[in-house]
Every structure is written in C-alpha cells, then in structure tokens.
C-alpha cells in the first residue's frame, strides 16, 4: 500500500530518532519539482514557539516518513545547509499557487499542495483547486496524478491532458488513481 501524505501534513511533525528522542520538528518541506522529489526538510526547534534551526535534514538522512513522525537513525548528525543551491532555477522550489495547464492548453486549476509517496519521497501528484470551481464553495480539492518523470514547471505547471481523466476527489482513492494512470502511460508507450 502506498502511504500518501500532503506536503503540508508533514509540517510540524516531530523528527524522532529510532532510539525515541525528538530532536526537531519539520518547519517546511523542500522539493525539487523538476525531479519530482523531496530534497529535505528545514527544521524548527522542538518547543511551543520553536525557532528556526540552521540545521536541515536531507532526504538521505531520513529513515522513514510516517503520518505521525519523521524517523531518523540515532547517529544522524544534523548539519547547517542551504537548500537553495541544490534546486536549479525554475524547476525547483515553490509550486504552490502555480497554475496547472495540460499540454493541450486547458487550465486544470491552481496548485494548493503536493502529494508525496512516503515510501520513496517522490511527488506523485498535486492537490489543486479546480479552475471551474466557484470561489464560494471552499474546501473542495482535487488530486491530479503526475507521470513518473514529473511535470515541466516554469511559469505554469504543464501536465499531460490524459492526467485529468485520473483526477480523484479524495486522498484515499488517489493512490489507486496514480497507479492506474502510470500503468496506462506504460501501456501506451509499448
């Protein structure tokens, strides 16, 4: 079973060693949208008004990401680093609030969050507010699957038109939608 989580679900999760000590909490999730992967986490101190830590957690240092905690091995040394250098220009960083357009030129909506497969830290889709959704109906979100190769992101986020057929309205059914979409892509290329 795929464990899917929204990027914002990870914010505030404790970072816990396998020996059971909490060392920090997730301040923000850093993505490389070009490669469809988590780069790592920036961290806050573990307290009610935790200040930002200089140290960051890179993807390689993470042992597991679960719904209740981010687990790291006991011997991980957190190091101060700057993630900005690791992402390159337009492909990295912030996709939230980007418009999603299909390669046939239809606006799907606006990105409100990313959906992560906790198994390998890859981005499997985006949470979007549909473009045809009137503003007064708040809270409705759709989940749009991504092809394994990731989508092109620049001024807008370009996705294949076929992805729209696999949009799902809740995260529970989304894991299946991602799988069937990617299966369909593989079948088509053969």
């Amino acid at each position: 079973m795929k464990g899917l989580l929204r990027g914002t679900d990870l914010v505030g999760l404790p970072v816990v060693t396998l020996t059971g000590d909490d060392v920090a909490e997730v301040r923000d999730v850093v993505f490389d949208a070009g490669h469809g992967q988590i780069v790592g986490f920036t961290l806050n101190k573990r307290s009610r008004l935790g200040r930002r830590l200089k140290e960051v957690l890179t993807r390689e240092q993470i042992s597991a990401v679960g719904p209740d905690a981010v687990m790291i091995p006991a011997d991980v040394q957190l190091e101060a680093a700057d993630f900005v250098e690791q992402t390159d220009g337009d492909s990295g960083g912030d996709v939230i609030a980007d418009r999603v357009i299909t390669d046939t030129g239809v606006v799907v909506g606006t990105v409100t969050d990313v959906v992560i497969d906790t198994g390998d830290g890859s981005i499997v889709g985006y949470e979007v507010v549909p473009a045809d959704e009137p503003d007064q109906r708040k809270g409705r979100r759709s989940y749009l699957p991504l092809p394994e190769t990731g989508a092109v992101s620049g001024e807008a986020l370009i996705v294949p038109a076929a992805a729209v057929d696999y949009v799902s309205n809740d995260l529970a059914g989304f894991a299946e939608a991602v799988d069937s979409y990617r299966d369909a892509l593989r079948g088509g290329s053969r």
Partner: peptide
C-alpha cells in the same frame, strides 16, 4: 523494540496495518 527515548518508544512496524 528499537529504542526508548524521551519522546517515544520506537518499535518495528508490525505487519498488520
């Protein structure tokens, strides 16, 4: 059992999920 720390007791993920 993996560890007992100040935040939690950590165990290996049981198969029944």
């Amino acid at each position: 059992l993996q560890g007992i720390g100040t935040y939690a007791t950590v165990v290996r993920d049981p198969a029944d999920r």
